[in-house]
């Protein structure tokens, strides 16, 4: 029963953080939201009995992806200005 609740709660959190990643105007904040999404995703993978994938997602998605995104944002432009 509690596992079912987690299976519902975690996807909702993932969707929420992905919405933050899409909607935030500050790109650094969006990158952090992507990292949070990856971390929650790796937790979900662990609960879905895939520890191998969880380790890979935590290492690649939450750390390296964020590092690359932040490097790219720092060398371009931080705010997204829509007109």
């Amino acid at each position: 029963m509690i596992l079912d609740a987690i299976h519902i709660l975690l996807p909702i959190l993932i969707i929420a953080s992905s919405l933050f990643a899409v909607l935030l105007k500050d790109l650094i904040a969006a990158a952090i939201a992507v990292a949070a999404m990856s971390l929650l995703l790796s937790l979900e993978f662990f609960i879905l009995q895939a520890p191998d994938v969880a380790i890979a997602e935590a290492g690649v998605g939450a750390c390296l992806t964020t590092a690359i995104l932040v490097i790219a944002i720092k060398s371009t432009k931080r705010m997204e200005d829509e007109k």
Binding site: L27, A30, M37, I73, T76, E80
Partner: peptide, 15 residues
Amino acid sequence: KNLIKMVIGITIIQS
């Protein structure tokens, strides 16, 4: 409209 937002979109689809 932002290119980095498009890239983030691809990451989300990937996830």
